[in-house]
Amino acid sequence: MRGLLIVVTALVLILTDARCASLTRILVGFPPGQATDLIARLLAERLGPALGETVIVENRPGQGGSIALASLAQSPADGHTVVLAPLASLVVNPHLYKSIAYDTRRDFAPVALVADLPLLLVVNPSLPVNSVAELIAYAKANPEKLAHPSSGNGTLSHLGMEVFKQRAGITILHVPYRGSVPAMTDLMTGIVGVAMDTVAVTEPFIRGDKMRLIASAYGKRVAAFPDTPTVAEQGFAEVDLSAWLGIVASAATPKARVDRLGAAINKIIQSPEIVARFTALGAIPRSEGPADFGAFLASEDARWSAVVKASGLRIE
Rank of each mutant, 00 (worst) to 15 (best):
F164I: 01
F164H: 00
F164S: 01
F164A: 00
F164E: 01
K165V: 01
Q166D: 12
Q166M: 14
Q166I: 13
R167A: 15
A168F: 00
A168S: 10
G169L: 09
G169P: 08
G169T: 09
G169D: 07
I170R: 08
I170W: 07
T171N: 15
I172R: 01
I172F: 04
L173T: 15
L173I: 08
L173D: 10
L173Q: 15
L173Y: 02
H174D: 12
H174Q: 08
H174V: 03
H174K: 03
H174L: 03
V175M: 02
V175R: 13
V175T: 07
V175Q: 10
P176I: 04
P176C: 08
P176H: 06
P176T: 07
Y177S: 08
Y177W: 08
Y177V: 06
R178H: 10
R178E: 10
R178S: 13
R178D: 11
S180A: 15
S180E: 10
P182S: 07
P182D: 05
A183C: 05
A183I: 02
A183H: 02
A183Q: 04
A183L: 02
M184F: 05
T185S: 11
D186W: 00
D186P: 02
L187W: 02
L187T: 07
L187Q: 04
L187P: 09
M188H: 03
M188P: 01
T189C: 06
T189I: 14
G190A: 09
G190I: 11
G190V: 12
G190M: 04
I191Y: 14
I191R: 15
I191D: 11
I191H: 14
V192L: 12
V192Y: 10
G193V: 05
G193H: 14
G193Y: 00
G193K: 07
V194L: 02
V194G: 03
A195G: 08
A195I: 01
A195K: 02
M196E: 13
M196C: 07
M196F: 03
